[in-house]
Design a binder for these strands. Structure first.
Lengths: 327, 327
DNA sequence: TTGAAAGCGCTAACAT
DNA sequence: ATGTTAGCGCTTTCAA
């Protein structure tokens, strides 16, 4: 930057000012500075800037795993939106592990990030106290309805479960099942189950639940379905914790010649790209996966703008039931 | 850090040394420092450290979109592996846009990253010269066989296309089709097409190609298939640019009552989670999506270790043909 | 093994 | 609108 200043014939602080707020520098010098920057291919040193101003243009984001298509979609819009505003994403996988989450929060904090984004409400005790001690804007995403540390953008998985329960009851299904990845690998699937079970039971129905041995696995979903139907042939509808599980269930039905929805109704969660196109088209619930990214960015940017107002914002983005022929 | 030093009764530079290389500090002072760190909940300021040492523990990663499941899988292992080594990932979406890529490279460079990871070999002219001017270790991933800027971890999409061509020819399919997302949205699908077409034509076969209007869309894939088969009913096999497209094609066959592989053989690319489980199970090619992440990390860490040796490493991780009943 | 001193490249008062 | 001055919180010689 010194070089740029020398070549442009101005002082370093003028260059710095020009780079940050160009309109506070005279047109004439602005041009000279721009020319010098181009000539030297000057790139500012972000770390020096961050150190001097004691704030950075970094947003730390923690997700269980990047490769979960829901979070990946959210990250996509979040990155886009924040990049437009001049921020960059430091991403970490917690792998469903509170210790790793704590370690990640610690290392993100050491960057003095402008903001932090975390998935869900479950955090370790020490993580929570680090978060509360700092005054870094925080958004918890992909959930709603439980006590939050700061801002929230998500929806209620409990209500989602209830929504499907109501739908199945309306269509006359009472003897139902729920097939899910292991709850320890997907806490929010557990919440959907709770809502679903309570909804069905309030309607005098019954729910049989099966957890896969780990994360989503279409083959294992098919196996579990077969076992379930052998044990309890009266089951007439199954709510799958996500559309991938539902796909596995539908493949199994196809192999066994079980008509959907006549022999067995199937519902999912996610409205993935292929979901409208299955045979028959799958009834599902659409989560606001892109909107969450958008909303998280907006909450953060709003807070970063007017630094004073410490208004805690919590946004429930809701879900949509998409009724198709599988129920 | 001054506070820590005061409480521990040592100098700041001893604290700094202890934090970086604990075994060069006496056990006694080490203990005192550790106690002080705990008591104060001290978190080092990474930016100050980075500025002083003029290097950071950041690896910049550029992908077309995070939400592509192939890249997401790679990012997952890459993040895990690099986090274990004490690095963090700064992730950017290029959105298939060279201008955005350039802008991202520029802002990543301003962090003095320890390394950079990019997807594929196509970069803008100015991006290339920035990359070459800097001496930041660079890995280009997810492709192989073209001139690279530095290190490479990937596989040949051209060879992948040829592999499937050979397989289909062996099974007696000569009149074939290729259905793909728009090549401008997936350059590597275009490479697979090139390999496939040349392979089939060398075997005296024929390929009819159809591009979707944008990214992967199972519904549109079905529509394209119908049109294709109406125009040219003699087609007996279709190679889909990825397994999602193949899923759309299979749904369409199911709706129309076309037996797979009797009426139409189907092959895909990706070996996604559901692929072994379709009806019938789908023949596909398995790309080393996790291995790429692993290998990128290893190349980077090797280079970061022995800083002197500027050995350019290029790794072809290859693919596996997985033959199932759909062909 | 430890400490003192200098400085990494910028920003932020402040004075002009 | 521009320049001067003093740090930001560390790491890194270098000397002890």
């Amino acid at each position: 930057m010194g070089d740029v200043a020398r070549i442009a014939g101005v002082s370093p602080s003028t260059v710095s000012l020009y780079l940050r707020r160009p309109d506070e520098v005279s047109e004439q010098r602005g041009q000279r500075i721009r020319a010098a920057v181009d000539r030297l291919g000057y790139l500012p040193n972000t770390m020096a800037g961050g150190l001097a101003s004691s704030r950075s243009r970094i947003i730390g984001v923690l997700v269980p795993t990047i490769s979960n298509s829901f979070f990946a979609a959210t990250l996509d819009t979040l990155e886009k939106r924040l990049r437009e505003a001049g921020y960059q994403l430091l991403i970490g996988n917690t792998e469903f592990d509170e210790a790793r989450e704590e370690e990640l929060v610690r290392s993100m904090m050491s960057w003095s990030p402008a903001g932090l984004v975390m998935t869900g409400f479950r955090h370790g005790r020490r993580t929570v106290s680090m978060l509360l001690d700092s005054d870094i804007p925080l958004v918890e995403m992909w959930d709603y309805g439980q006590p939050a540390l700061d801002m929230v953008a998500g929806f209620s998985h409990y209500a989602t479960g209830q929504l499907i329960a109501r739908h199945l009851l309306e269509r006359g299904y009472r003897d139902t099942a729920f097939i899910s990845p292991r709850f320890s690998r997907d806490v929010r699937a557990g919440e959907r189950y709770r809502g679903f079970r309570e909804g069905i039971e309030q309607g005098r129905g019954r729910v049989t639940m099966r957890e896969l041995s780990g994360a989503t696995d279409t083959a294992e979903a098919g196996t579990l379905l077969s076992e379930l139907m052998a044990e309890r042939p009266s089951i007439s509808a199954v709510f799958c914790a996500n559309d991938m599980v539902a796909l596995g269930v539908m493949f199994e039905c196809q192999r066994r010649g079980w008509e959907i929805p006549e022999r067995l109704a199937v519902a999912g969660f996610g409205n993935l790209e292929f979901t409208p196109n299955t045979v028959p088209p799958l009834t599902t619930v659409e989560p606001p996966k892109y909107e969450i990214g958008q909303q998280v960015a907006e909450l953060l940017l709003a807070r970063l703008g007017k630094s004073g107002e410490a208004e805690a914002h919590q946004v429930d983005l809701g879900v949509h039931l998409i009724t198709r022929e599988s129920t």
